[in-house]
Structures are given as structure tokens and as C-alpha cells.
Amino acid sequence: MKAVRLRGYGEAPTIDDVPEPKISGAWDVIVDVGAAGVCRTDLHVIEGQWEQIQHPDLPYTLGHENAGWVREVGSAVTNVVPGDAVIMHPLTSCGLCAPCRIGEDSHCENATFPGLNVDGGMADQLLTNARAVVKLDDGLAPADVAALADAGLTAFHAVRKAVPELFPGTHAVVIGAGGLGHIGIQTLAAMTAATITVIDRSEEALELATTLGAHHTVLSTDDESVAAKVQDITGGGAHVVFDFVGEQGAELLAPRLLRNRGSHYVIGYGGAVHIPTIEVISREINVIGNLVGTYTDLVELMTLTAQGRVTLHTQTYPLDAAGDALNDLDHGRLVGRGILVPAAARSR
């Protein structure tokens, strides 16, 4: 089968012929990939940023945002059958460790992470497990939801955590209306009563944000101008800032947009947050990290999607154009989320 493989850090991935995966465990599930999302994390993986955390053996297949149709299942699998349309949680969790026992399966102590430390879904087929698959509503197609497996799930997870802070009369500021941010805007609109202000460098992205539920938009120019506009819109600063960029200066701007006792939710990454400790304590501000969401988060997100309250905006590429998709993402040419569709999926 065809697969997008990383052979060395700092090198462009290649399209290789590799063996199809095989069932080896009772809980295994093999999926015919319908679509695989193209994520900024893939760029960071290629750069080598995740090597110290995940230690993958190169070469391996990229792709951690995946949806498709069940092809084959292990002997113990009962929650899906061949032919079912499914989306995959990014982690294959064990269900037995302490985090899994309390529903924090995104911190599973025995997880694999397809696309980061084992073969992922930028391929014709993907090996996952029964605990990772969420059966899709009849009205949802894999290509319509694949990137929600990480981009959407991570955005939903952050908003879900912030819901108690975003009661009527509060202000939420979203930095970045791209692949993650445009889902964050929709989940904010669906789950909170906050007034939503969106900041982005792209006028096209801001136009999209307005259609998705943003009440105000700010074109990102210089930090001083942006901070002044946000302070004016929010009447003294945001109660919560969601930073979906996390680099290129956004991580430094975000704390300046908060009011006292506000919360800075870090979702994008690549930079470093620098806040003097005297400011943290005197203003009582919070900096909150956000990993990918849990399995339950993904189920809830799929419910919102099936209800039509969350829609993924995508640009589609064939699997063998993965290099073009990654390049477009890296150079800011994507609005919404890029997805790769294998040839077999295009003909279904």
C-alpha cells in the first residue's frame, strides 16, 4: 500500500510502498483510510521537535488525524464491525492504567500514538485498536471529519475545560482562526455564552470566523495595535484567551490580552511563554496547557458535528500530494484544514 513516510528529520517525507498492516492482537482494528488530516504538528514532527518525547523508530508513516471504514477486527472487538465508518482517537489507549481508569485516556501510560511514534494514517490503511474508534453517525463521511480527530478534538478539549469561566457577560479571545481555531470558534459558540473576539493575520480567515460565530475580529498587525483594540472590545481584557498558534509571537501577545484573574489557554505550540512571576501573582492570571482531548471529548464533538453545530472547513489533496499539502500549510496558504484522501477512498 502507499504511505507518507518520514525517513529523516528535516527531510521532506516520501511516498513509499509498504506492507499492509496485519491483525496481531484481540483488540486490533484495521481501517481503510478515508482521509487523513494535515496538521502543524506534522511540520513539528518533521523538524524533530517530538523526537525527545516520542522517540519513534525511523522511517515511519505520518498522520494522526484519521477517519475511514473498518476493514478487519480482532477476536475481542465488539463495538465496530467491518464496513463501519469511524473516526480514530489519536491515541491507542490500554484502559487499565490509572489515567485510563479515571477517563483521562489521553494520558494513558501505555498508549501508542499513530503518526508520532508508530505508523499513522497518511496511508491506504491504518492499524489502531477498539478503544480508539468512534463509530460515525450515518450522516457523517470520513473526509468531512478526519481532521476533527486532533485539530477539532484539541480545540474542543480546551473549550470544554473553560466552559465554567465563560458565563454570560464574559469575553473570550481566540488567537488564530486556522485549522484548530476555526473549530474552537464553533465550539465556543455552541457551548458558551461568551462574546467571542478573533485575531488572525489573514482577512480571509477573519471573514470565515465571522460566519462561524465570532462577534468581533481583529486583523493582526503590530502587537500594540492589537492589544489596544482587544482592550477596547473587551472593556479591560479577556476573561479567557485561547492561543491556537503558540509561536511566532502569539504566545507573547496572549498574556497582554487578559484582564486580572484571566486565563491563558495554550493550545498551539512551538514558542515559549514568558511571564514575570510577579505579574502572575499580582494579577492572579492562569496559564493552562491543553493536550489532545479524551475519547469522551471526541464522542461529544462528534455529537455536535452530527447536529450541524460544528463544520470542518477543508482543502482536499490526493495522498501522493502530501508534500504540496504540507508546504501549503507551512506557508500559510491553507484556510481551514488540509486533508489527504487515498485513491481508493476517492472512488468509494
Score class of each variant (00 low, 15 high):
E207K: 08
K161C: 01
A172F: 14
V145I: 15
H215I: 04
L126F: 14
L208Q: 15
A141V: 05
E203Y: 14
E165H: 09
A177C: 11
R160Y: 10
L127E: 04
V198C: 05
D150K: 15
L136F: 13
I175D: 03
H171K: 04
G179W: 00
T187N: 01
K161S: 07
A130Q: 14
E207D: 10
V218S: 05
G152L: 03
H182I: 12
H182N: 01
D200N: 03
V174E: 00
A147W: 02
E204S: 08
G181M: 06
L148W: 03
D150R: 10
V174H: 00
A214Y: 14
D138C: 03
A149N: 06
G184R: 01
N129M: 09
A141M: 15
D150V: 12
S202A: 12
I185N: 00
G181A: 02
V218Q: 06
D150H: 12
A132K: 05
I199L: 05
H216E: 11
L212H: 09
A149W: 11
T128K: 05
G169P: 02
A189N: 09
T211W: 10
I183F: 05
L127N: 11
A149K: 01
T170F: 00
K161W: 04
L148M: 11
E203R: 15
G169Q: 08
H182S: 07
L219Y: 10
T154R: 04
A141H: 04
V198R: 10
L148I: 06
L206I: 11
D150C: 15
V133Q: 14
A177M: 08
A193F: 03
E207S: 14
G179Y: 02
L126V: 09
G169F: 00
L219W: 11
S202V: 12
K135D: 13
T211E: 11
L208C: 13
E204I: 13
F156W: 03
A194F: 06
A146E: 13
A194N: 08
A189F: 08
A190I: 05
A177H: 09
L166S: 10
V198G: 02
T210W: 02
H215D: 11
T217C: 01
A209N: 08
I185W: 04
G213W: 00
E204A: 15
V159Y: 00
P142T: 06
L140I: 12
R160G: 02
V174F: 01
T187S: 08
A130G: 14
V173A: 10
A193I: 08
I183C: 07
K161G: 09
D138Q: 13
A132S: 10
M191T: 00
V159C: 05
T197G: 02
A149H: 06
L206G: 11
V163D: 09
N129F: 13
T154A: 09
E203F: 15
T128G: 15
L127G: 05
A172I: 08
T128R: 12
L166W: 11
T197H: 03
P164F: 14
V218N: 15
T197Y: 00
P142K: 09
A209F: 00
A205T: 03
A214G: 12
T128W: 11
I183K: 05
T210P: 06
V159Q: 00
G139F: 03
A162I: 09
A162L: 05
A214M: 03
D150F: 10
A151H: 01
A193H: 12
D200R: 07
A177T: 07
A146Y: 10
A149P: 04
A162K: 02
L188I: 08
M191K: 03
L206K: 08
T211G: 15
T197N: 00
A205E: 07
T154G: 01
